[in-house]
Design a protein around this nucleic acid. Structure first.
Lengths: 222, 222
DNA sequence: CTTATCCAAATTGTATACAATACAGAACCT
DNA sequence: AGGTTCTGTATTGTATACAATTTGGATAAG
């Protein structure tokens, strides 16, 4: 933590993820600087990073805007995620250890607890879900893969999708994690890959269904 | 081009790609600033971008070094490239237009010319090869995919590999591009994907063979 | 009324100065 | 002598001032 720069990065990302900064909004360095209580220098640093995360988009003349994602963009992101996280799961199956397996089980148990009640604890679900995927990714043991996926995993749009899940969707997600555990236990990388890819694709369709009504979704999952 | 910042980025990247800055070398901002004739501010900007490209690595305390890649790292990068560029080829097949197809043909013709002589024109080969892949990527029409692949395509290690190609390797590369053209002509995305994935994998093994001797390469292409 | 041009305001890019931090070597204690 | 702490130096982080560029509108010509 280099203090100001990272603080600014976290703060701005949080603003975008929470929707406080809406998609398409212009972003002025000085305004953010004042808001974060730092000078423009660390803000520029943070914006550069956020641009890498594709949360910020810069126009031809370097003006910054909050990136807005069309349904097609989101579809692309999910398809890439499905491919890359599938690959991560395959690699993770090769490297899986008893300890990590136990951690994954604990994680999924926590998820089960969070969604068992009448009112699902969405925040906990999201946290533990992220932890689960992070563990798999870490076990895959490819710094490069982690790097690529980080930009894809924390999408503002996706972030809020789980709030529209119906109870059954939570249950399915939990159950798919269970299948993944079975694949890991058996060291079956190909199986793990299939499950993970399907898991991510299902998440996309959950998102897509939640955001329909505007127009019939015309994407074909190739 | 915001002038100084981009100039610094290009200059530093060129230093790394050319080997002028060797892997593992420490990188001091002020030294680069003097060398590029600009102040530290645009240098920091450039370093941040290069860090995103994984050409620069920063230690715990934010000191910069030229990233060094193990054979395993390179293998990972290639495998990811194979997957992602395969996907790009599939999408490109869907979107292919007559104009782009013509450009690709011209590109591959230029490659043929460059490698036909007794002494292959490696610089031209590399340029046109990059152009070919860039066209495919652009036609895939996914900003996100482009973003992910950019970091993977221009690797310093890879960059110098083609200089060790034997004549046959150049010929194969050209011929695979030709196959890709056939797939595009027929709009066969699945075929295009297979060819591209194989094309990239072959490139890895060419790299791997060129850099062997140190120890028997123990990677398994999954 | 439309269009082009130019000017003023706003915004980003760069340079420099200064503060904070990390590294290395010396002095000191055990 | 070995290890530890302390201090000077080198390097990075931040703030501010200023230059360059862009944006939007006002104004004038057609």
């Amino acid at each position: 933590m280099t203090k100001a720069s990272d603080r600014a990065y976290d703060a701005i990302r949080a603003m975008i993820l929470s929707g406080e900064l809406a998609a398409g909004d212009p972003v002025r360095e000085e305004a953010l600087a004042e808001r974060c209580g730092v000078s423009r220098t660390p803000i520029r640093d943070a914006l550069r990073r956020l641009e890498g995360d594709l949360l910020i988009r810069k126009t031809d003349s370097q003006r910054s805007f909050v990136a807005d994602w069309s349904l097609d963009d989101v579809g692309d992101a999910f398809e890439l995620r499905a491919m890359l996280e599938g690959y991560a799961a395959r690699r993770a199956a090769r490297n899986m250890s008893a300890e990590v397996l136990e951690q994954l089980r604990a994680c999924n148990a926590a998820i089960a607890a969070a969604i068992s009640g009448r009112k699902p604890d969405v925040a906990t679900f999201l946290d533990r879900n992220r932890e689960f995927h992070a563990l798999v990714l870490e076990t895959a043991g490819s710094r490069r893969l982690t790097n690529l996926l980080t930009a894809l995993i924390e999408q503002p749009v996706v972030w809020r999708t789980a709030h529209h899940y119906d109870p059954e969707a939570f249950q399915r997600s939990h159950s798919e994690h269970g299948d993944l555990l079975s694949a890991f236990e058996r060291g079956d990388g190909a199986w793990a890959e299939s499950i993970m890819a399907g898991h991510i694709r299902r998440a996309f369709h959950a998102y897509s269904d939640a955001h329909l009504g505007m127009k019939a979704a015309g994407r074909d999952a190739a």
